[in-house]
Design a protein around this nucleic acid. Structure first.
Ligand SMILES: [Mn+2]
Ligand SMILES: [Mn+2]
Ligand SMILES: [Zn+2]
Ligand SMILES: [Zn+2]
Lengths: 126, 126
DNA sequence: GTGAAAATGGGAACGAGTATCATTGCTGTT
DNA sequence: AACAGCAATGATACTCGTTCCCATTTTCAC
Protein backbone atom coordinates (compact mmCIF):
# COMPACT_ATOMS: atom_id res chain seq x y z
CA UNK A 1 0.00 0.00 0.00
CA UNK A 2 1.61 3.20 -1.21
CA UNK A 3 1.12 6.54 0.41
CA UNK A 4 -0.06 8.65 -2.47
CA UNK A 5 -1.24 12.23 -2.41
CA UNK A 6 -4.69 11.11 -3.55
CA UNK A 7 -5.01 8.60 -0.75
CA UNK A 8 -3.97 11.14 1.86
CA UNK A 9 -6.36 13.80 0.55
CA UNK A 10 -9.34 11.44 0.46
CA UNK A 11 -8.58 10.18 3.95
CA UNK A 12 -8.24 13.72 5.28
CA UNK A 13 -11.55 14.74 3.70
CA UNK A 14 -13.52 11.78 4.98
CA UNK A 15 -12.08 12.39 8.44
CA UNK A 16 -12.76 16.12 8.33
CA UNK A 17 -16.54 15.80 8.51
CA UNK A 18 -19.19 13.98 10.46
CA UNK A 19 -21.84 14.28 7.76
CA UNK A 20 -21.29 10.75 6.39
CA UNK A 21 -20.78 12.06 2.84
CA UNK A 22 -21.38 10.39 -0.50
CA UNK A 23 -18.54 9.42 -2.82
CA UNK A 24 -19.51 12.30 -5.05
CA UNK A 25 -19.19 14.84 -2.26
CA UNK A 26 -15.76 13.49 -1.36
CA UNK A 27 -14.85 13.79 -5.03
CA UNK A 28 -15.95 17.43 -5.19
CA UNK A 29 -13.93 18.27 -2.09
CA UNK A 30 -10.89 16.41 -3.37
CA UNK A 31 -10.97 18.34 -6.65
CA UNK A 32 -10.42 21.54 -4.69
CA UNK A 33 -7.02 20.15 -3.72
CA UNK A 34 -6.18 17.97 -6.71
CA UNK A 35 -8.24 19.40 -9.58
CA UNK A 36 -7.74 16.45 -11.91
CA UNK A 37 -8.27 13.63 -9.43
CA UNK A 38 -10.64 11.11 -10.97
CA UNK A 39 -13.86 9.80 -9.52
CA UNK A 40 -12.55 6.28 -10.08
CA UNK A 41 -9.63 7.01 -7.80
CA UNK A 42 -11.95 8.30 -5.10
CA UNK A 43 -13.96 5.08 -5.26
CA UNK A 44 -10.79 2.99 -5.35
CA UNK A 45 -9.30 4.76 -2.33
CA UNK A 46 -12.53 4.68 -0.33
CA UNK A 47 -12.85 0.97 -1.05
CA UNK A 48 -9.32 0.30 0.08
CA UNK A 49 -9.72 2.40 3.21
CA UNK A 50 -12.79 0.40 4.06
CA UNK A 51 -10.92 -2.89 3.66
CA UNK A 52 -8.29 -1.53 6.04
CA UNK A 53 -10.99 -0.59 8.54
CA UNK A 54 -10.28 3.14 8.36
CA UNK A 55 -13.64 3.92 6.79
CA UNK A 56 -17.18 2.62 7.23
CA UNK A 57 -19.57 2.36 4.30
CA UNK A 58 -23.21 3.07 5.06
CA UNK A 59 -26.53 2.53 3.32
CA UNK A 60 -29.06 5.29 3.84
CA UNK A 61 -31.85 3.61 1.91
CA UNK A 62 -31.10 5.47 -1.29
CA UNK A 63 -28.96 4.03 -4.03
CA UNK A 64 -25.88 5.99 -3.00
CA UNK A 65 -23.35 4.77 -0.49
CA UNK A 66 -22.28 7.09 2.27
CA UNK A 67 -18.92 6.99 3.99
CA UNK A 68 -17.83 7.46 7.58
CA UNK A 69 -14.24 8.33 8.37
CA UNK A 70 -14.80 7.66 12.05
CA UNK A 71 -15.24 3.91 12.23
CA UNK A 72 -15.66 1.94 15.40
CA UNK A 73 -18.71 0.39 17.01
CA UNK A 74 -21.54 2.85 16.55
CA UNK A 75 -24.74 3.00 14.55
CA UNK A 76 -26.72 5.60 12.62
CA UNK A 77 -30.01 7.42 12.51
CA UNK A 78 -31.16 8.80 9.17
CA UNK A 79 -33.63 11.62 8.61
CA UNK A 80 -36.33 10.46 6.21
CA UNK A 81 -36.89 13.99 4.94
CA UNK A 82 -33.46 15.56 4.49
CA UNK A 83 -31.12 12.56 4.69
CA UNK A 84 -29.07 13.92 7.56
CA UNK A 85 -27.24 11.12 9.39
CA UNK A 86 -26.29 11.23 13.07
CA UNK A 87 -24.33 8.79 15.18
CA UNK A 88 -25.99 6.53 17.72
CA UNK A 89 -24.39 4.17 20.22
CA UNK A 90 -24.84 0.47 19.62
CA UNK A 91 -27.88 -1.00 21.38
CA UNK A 92 -27.10 -4.61 20.43
CA UNK A 93 -25.23 -6.49 23.14
CA UNK A 94 -23.32 -9.75 23.30
CA UNK A 95 -26.31 -11.62 24.74
CA UNK A 96 -28.49 -10.66 21.77
CA UNK A 97 -25.78 -11.73 19.35
CA UNK A 98 -25.51 -15.13 20.99
CA UNK A 99 -29.26 -15.53 20.96
CA UNK A 100 -29.36 -14.84 17.22
CA UNK A 101 -26.50 -17.26 16.65
CA UNK A 102 -28.30 -20.01 18.56
CA UNK A 103 -31.59 -19.47 16.82
CA UNK A 104 -30.35 -19.31 13.25
CA UNK A 105 -27.26 -21.50 13.26
CA UNK A 106 -25.43 -18.68 11.49
CA UNK A 107 -21.98 -17.75 12.74
CA UNK A 108 -22.44 -14.04 13.33
CA UNK A 109 -19.55 -11.77 12.36
CA UNK A 110 -21.17 -8.35 12.31
CA UNK A 111 -24.38 -6.44 12.64
CA UNK A 112 -25.69 -3.13 11.49
CA UNK A 113 -28.53 -1.01 12.85
CA UNK A 114 -30.20 1.85 11.05
CA UNK A 115 -32.75 4.06 12.71
CA UNK A 116 -35.11 6.19 10.66
CA UNK A 117 -37.06 9.26 11.62
CA UNK A 118 -37.16 13.03 11.48
CA UNK A 119 -34.20 15.13 12.54
CA UNK A 120 -34.86 18.06 14.90
CA UNK A 121 -34.70 20.59 12.05
CA UNK A 122 -37.20 18.68 9.91
CA UNK A 123 -39.62 18.31 12.82
CA UNK A 124 -39.98 22.11 12.82
CA UNK A 125 -40.95 22.64 9.18
CA UNK A 126 -44.43 21.01 8.97
CA UNK B 1 -55.65 0.73 -6.83
CA UNK B 2 -56.87 -1.78 -9.44
CA UNK B 3 -56.70 -5.48 -9.00
CA UNK B 4 -54.84 -6.60 -12.08
CA UNK B 5 -53.69 -10.08 -12.99
CA UNK B 6 -50.09 -8.89 -12.85
CA UNK B 7 -50.49 -7.51 -9.37
CA UNK B 8 -52.08 -10.70 -8.10
CA UNK B 9 -49.43 -12.92 -9.66
CA UNK B 10 -46.55 -10.87 -8.25
CA UNK B 11 -48.12 -10.80 -4.81
CA UNK B 12 -48.70 -14.57 -4.87
CA UNK B 13 -45.11 -15.20 -5.90
CA UNK B 14 -43.55 -12.99 -3.29
CA UNK B 15 -45.74 -14.62 -0.65
CA UNK B 16 -44.97 -18.14 -1.86
CA UNK B 17 -41.34 -18.14 -0.73
CA UNK B 18 -39.28 -17.24 2.28
CA UNK B 19 -36.04 -16.77 0.34
CA UNK B 20 -36.33 -12.98 0.18
CA UNK B 21 -35.99 -13.01 -3.61
CA UNK B 22 -34.66 -10.38 -5.99
CA UNK B 23 -36.89 -8.52 -8.45
CA UNK B 24 -35.34 -10.55 -11.24
CA UNK B 25 -36.28 -13.85 -9.61
CA UNK B 26 -39.85 -12.65 -9.13
CA UNK B 27 -39.87 -11.64 -12.79
CA UNK B 28 -38.70 -15.08 -13.93
CA UNK B 29 -41.38 -16.78 -11.85
CA UNK B 30 -44.05 -14.38 -13.08
CA UNK B 31 -43.16 -15.12 -16.71
CA UNK B 32 -44.11 -18.73 -16.14
CA UNK B 33 -47.68 -17.52 -15.56
CA UNK B 34 -47.79 -14.38 -17.74
CA UNK B 35 -45.10 -14.93 -20.38
CA UNK B 36 -45.06 -11.34 -21.60
CA UNK B 37 -45.20 -9.56 -18.26
CA UNK B 38 -42.59 -6.85 -18.25
CA UNK B 39 -39.82 -6.31 -15.75
CA UNK B 40 -40.99 -2.73 -15.37
CA UNK B 41 -44.37 -3.97 -14.21
CA UNK B 42 -42.76 -6.26 -11.66
CA UNK B 43 -40.81 -3.32 -10.24
CA UNK B 44 -43.90 -1.10 -10.33
CA UNK B 45 -46.04 -3.67 -8.52
CA UNK B 46 -43.40 -4.47 -5.93
CA UNK B 47 -42.96 -0.78 -5.26
CA UNK B 48 -46.65 -0.28 -4.81
CA UNK B 49 -47.00 -3.33 -2.58
CA UNK B 50 -44.25 -1.93 -0.41
CA UNK B 51 -46.03 1.41 -0.09
CA UNK B 52 -49.12 -0.50 1.01
CA UNK B 53 -47.10 -2.39 3.60
CA UNK B 54 -47.68 -5.79 2.00
CA UNK B 55 -44.01 -6.21 1.06
CA UNK B 56 -40.71 -5.34 2.72
CA UNK B 57 -37.72 -4.28 0.68
CA UNK B 58 -34.33 -5.39 1.97
CA UNK B 59 -30.74 -4.45 1.30
CA UNK B 60 -28.31 -7.34 1.39
CA UNK B 61 -25.22 -5.23 0.78
CA UNK B 62 -25.13 -5.99 -2.94
CA UNK B 63 -26.57 -3.73 -5.60
CA UNK B 64 -29.81 -5.74 -5.84
CA UNK B 65 -32.84 -5.20 -3.68
CA UNK B 66 -34.50 -8.20 -2.13
CA UNK B 67 -38.17 -8.48 -1.30
CA UNK B 68 -40.06 -10.07 1.56
CA UNK B 69 -43.71 -10.95 1.16
CA UNK B 70 -44.05 -11.58 4.88
CA UNK B 71 -43.75 -8.15 6.42
CA UNK B 72 -44.16 -7.41 10.07
CA UNK B 73 -41.66 -6.72 12.81
CA UNK B 74 -38.73 -9.03 12.20
CA UNK B 75 -35.13 -8.65 11.09
CA UNK B 76 -32.66 -10.49 8.88
CA UNK B 77 -29.36 -12.32 8.89
CA UNK B 78 -27.43 -12.50 5.64
CA UNK B 79 -24.79 -15.08 4.73
CA UNK B 80 -21.66 -13.30 3.58
CA UNK B 81 -20.69 -16.19 1.32
CA UNK B 82 -23.89 -17.35 -0.43
CA UNK B 83 -26.28 -14.50 0.25
CA UNK B 84 -28.92 -16.67 1.91
CA UNK B 85 -31.21 -14.59 4.13
CA UNK B 86 -32.98 -15.91 7.22
CA UNK B 87 -35.46 -14.26 9.52
CA UNK B 88 -34.52 -13.13 13.01
CA UNK B 89 -36.76 -11.71 15.73
CA UNK B 90 -36.29 -8.08 16.61
CA UNK B 91 -33.86 -7.50 19.47
CA UNK B 92 -34.54 -3.77 19.72
CA UNK B 93 -37.06 -2.84 22.39
CA UNK B 94 -39.08 0.23 23.24
CA UNK B 95 -36.61 1.33 25.90
CA UNK B 96 -33.76 1.40 23.39
CA UNK B 97 -35.89 3.36 20.95
CA UNK B 98 -36.69 5.98 23.54
CA UNK B 99 -33.06 6.21 24.55
CA UNK B 100 -32.06 6.89 20.93
CA UNK B 101 -34.81 9.45 20.59
CA UNK B 102 -33.65 11.29 23.71
CA UNK B 103 -30.01 11.26 22.70
CA UNK B 104 -30.38 12.41 19.11
CA UNK B 105 -33.50 14.56 19.16
CA UNK B 106 -34.75 12.61 16.14
CA UNK B 107 -38.34 11.43 16.17
CA UNK B 108 -37.86 7.72 15.49
CA UNK B 109 -40.33 6.07 13.17
CA UNK B 110 -38.57 2.82 12.26
CA UNK B 111 -35.43 0.81 12.64
CA UNK B 112 -33.72 -1.95 10.72
CA UNK B 113 -31.19 -4.50 11.87
CA UNK B 114 -29.03 -6.60 9.59
CA UNK B 115 -26.87 -9.39 10.92
CA UNK B 116 -24.02 -10.76 8.86
CA UNK B 117 -22.24 -14.08 9.10
CA UNK B 118 -21.98 -17.57 7.66
CA UNK B 119 -25.02 -19.76 7.21
CA UNK B 120 -24.83 -23.36 8.48
CA UNK B 121 -24.21 -24.73 4.95
CA UNK B 122 -21.35 -22.32 4.27
CA UNK B 123 -19.70 -23.09 7.60
CA UNK B 124 -19.19 -26.64 6.37
CA UNK B 125 -17.36 -25.91 3.10
CA UNK B 126 -13.95 -24.58 4.23
C1' DG C 1 -72.12 -1.34 -22.31
C1' DT C 2 -69.50 3.13 -21.98
C1' DG C 3 -65.99 6.28 -20.64
C1' DA C 4 -62.35 7.90 -17.75
C1' DA C 5 -58.53 6.75 -15.37
C1' DA C 6 -55.10 3.56 -14.11
C1' DA C 7 -51.95 -0.07 -15.38
C1' DT C 8 -49.19 -2.45 -18.73
C1' DG C 9 -45.41 -3.77 -22.27
C1' DG C 10 -41.55 -2.74 -24.61
C1' DG C 11 -37.82 -0.29 -24.98
C1' DA C 12 -34.97 3.73 -24.10
C1' DA C 13 -32.70 6.19 -20.58
C1' DC C 14 -30.45 6.81 -16.19
C1' DG C 15 -26.70 6.68 -12.93
C1' DA C 16 -23.87 4.74 -9.21
C1' DG C 17 -20.31 2.06 -9.39
C1' DT C 18 -16.62 -0.93 -11.87
C1' DA C 19 -13.27 -2.26 -15.42
C1' DT C 20 -9.62 -1.31 -18.60
C1' DC C 21 -5.26 0.23 -19.87
C1' DA C 22 -1.63 3.42 -21.08
C1' DT C 23 0.88 6.51 -18.18
C1' DT C 24 2.65 8.22 -13.84
C1' DG C 25 5.13 8.24 -9.70
C1' DC C 26 6.14 5.77 -5.16
C1' DT C 27 9.68 3.11 -2.87
C1' DG C 28 13.35 0.09 -2.01
C1' DT C 29 17.93 -1.03 -4.03
C1' DT C 30 22.35 -0.10 -5.79
C1' DA D 1 21.27 10.17 -7.45
C1' DA D 2 19.88 7.03 -10.96
C1' DC D 3 17.34 2.91 -11.57
C1' DA D 4 13.88 -0.71 -11.87
C1' DG D 5 9.65 -2.71 -10.68
C1' DC D 6 5.15 -2.38 -9.90
C1' DA D 7 1.22 -0.26 -7.49
C1' DA D 8 -1.74 3.72 -8.25
C1' DT D 9 -3.74 7.04 -11.22
C1' DG D 10 -6.68 9.53 -14.96
C1' DA D 11 -9.56 9.16 -18.64
C1' DT D 12 -13.04 6.89 -20.40
C1' DA D 13 -15.85 2.98 -21.69
C1' DC D 14 -18.76 -0.13 -19.74
C1' DT D 15 -22.17 -2.64 -16.56
C1' DC D 16 -26.55 -3.58 -14.98
C1' DG D 17 -30.22 -2.74 -11.55
C1' DT D 18 -33.69 0.37 -11.67
C1' DT D 19 -36.63 4.10 -13.49
C1' DC D 20 -38.91 6.60 -17.12
C1' DC D 21 -41.79 7.19 -21.26
C1' DC D 22 -45.76 6.64 -23.97
C1' DA D 23 -48.91 4.29 -27.07
C1' DT D 24 -52.06 0.64 -26.09
C1' DT D 25 -54.76 -2.18 -23.08
C1' DT D 26 -57.46 -3.19 -19.05
C1' DT D 27 -60.13 -2.25 -15.07
C1' DC D 28 -64.22 -0.60 -12.83
C1' DA D 29 -67.67 2.90 -11.36
C1' DC D 30 -71.62 4.44 -13.55
MN1 LIG E 1 -20.99 7.58 12.02
MN1 LIG F 1 -38.03 -11.86 6.31
ZN1 LIG G 1 -34.00 16.22 8.39
ZN1 LIG H 1 -24.22 -19.36 3.01
Amino acid sequence: MRNTRQRQVVLDIVRSTNTHPTADWVYEQARKVIPNISLGTVYRVLGRLQEEGLVMQLDDGSRKSRFDGHPGPHQHIICERCGRIADVPDVVDQAATERVQQMTGYQVSAHRVEWFGLCPECQQGG
